[in-house]
Design a protein around this nucleic acid. Structure first.
Lengths: 205, 205
DNA sequence: TGCATTCATGCACAACGTGCACGTTCGTGG
DNA sequence: CCACGAACGTGCACGTTGTGCATGAATGCA
């Protein structure tokens, strides 16, 4: 399956090269002013080859966000079973946002790019929707098989990721310098506040 | 502003004609096998004119869903202030789904179409994101100005619409006949269950 | 080394989307 | 009533997007 041949490594390298090239060009010139041909040239591949890796420009741009979301779910799965669902989610979020990893940095950069270009919002949300199923599965495993056919896993995964999106959006909105994101402490505060609302009951008289 | 001249009426009529033509053709031949040219022909307008009404094929298709979402928010605003936030939302959902209106029927039809064609998901979610802001504003008005800058209105609107999406998805999944949606009673049951989870607290040990 | 698979690329083509110009229709004030 | 300006529908040209097909090269395997 995940064999580490030369081919697999080259493919993965090309894929990340395309992703980074797209992100770099979009941040410099704006999403609308970048063509697929430019991205292909920056990544040093043929125009036709680009479409072997991504269905379109937007997908390449939100690929970084997708990688971040996958990392988030992996962290969530790794949390001990003693933590509650929302508690584990809290730690997973902060762990991904905190690490100075290249994945984490490009994750935040991609989210900033999406914020500034509304045409990317749909694709960003599509990525989130795709991750909902994976998170729902992880939640079902965590709370036990009793809730397999129930609505809770899907509902919890969907609402939690949505809440996370709202929180991240507010977090990036606070940025004074559009280049640098606000400190992680602010994010922790908002995450805790949102989780408190969800855990305490969403309804209001 | 909303003057009812002949021009305005003709524009609106053409717009709905295009929307219905697109929905009809997509339901019959599949989304991927329908071109903008065919839609324009079905609606009896020039190809160029189509783009004066919609930016693309997908937007025309999800326009029905957008109309349904707007109707939902209008119903929510019309609910008496004595009801709680989630309670008012429950009544609004059932009111829209229940009425045999052409708007309601095309709403459900459009959602079914989106379910079967993943390429529409991003555009459907874009519509949802646009309605989030409107619903957040309505929620802020309902719970009072005290929570204006807080996270609650945005969080509540986003999670509520997401939960509604999950519920509607499960509802349409239950359809034995892919043409006819399940009865509204089943929807009511799922809506109540989802609202109970959100109101009682989302966390689980 | 020989063979099959996979990949990158070029080419052709359909479809998408937009700017521009032109004629027509509608609303409005004289 | 009618003349004028604004909005609209349409055709045309052009750049961009995305895909199917053929081909040669690189790769992994026996």
């Amino acid at each position: 399956m995940g064999m580490t041949g030369r081919r697999e490594r080259r493919k993965l390298a090309t894929r990340t090269a395309v992703r980074e090239a797209a992100l770099r060009l979009a941040l410099r010139h704006g999403v609308e002013n970048v063509t697929v041909e430019q991205i292909a040239a920056e990544a040093d591949i043929a125009l036709r080859t680009f479409f072997n890796y991504f269905p379109g420009k937007e997908e390449a741009l939100v690929a970084a966000a997708a990688a971040g979301a996958e990392a988030l779910i992996a962290e969530f799965r790794a949390r001990p079973a003693t933590e509650s669902v929302l508690g584990a989610l809290r730690e997973a979020v902060l762990a991904v946002a905190d690490r100075g990893d290249a994945t984490g940095r490009d994750y935040v950069r991609a989210l900033q790019l999406v914020r500034r270009s509304p045409s990317l919002v749909p694709h960003q949300l599509a990525v989130l929707a795709a991750q909902e199923r994976a998170l729902a599965e992880a939640v079902a495993e965590r709370v036990g098989p009793g809730t397999a056919g129930g609505i809770y896993p899907a509902l919890c995964a969907a609402t939690a990721l949505t809440a996370l999106r709202v929180v991240m959006d507010r977090w990036l909105e606070r940025a004074t310098d559009p280049e640098q994101p606000p400190p992680v402490d602010v994010l922790r505060e908002d995450v805790d506040q949102a989780i408190a609302v969800l855990a305490g009951g969403l309804d209001r008289p």
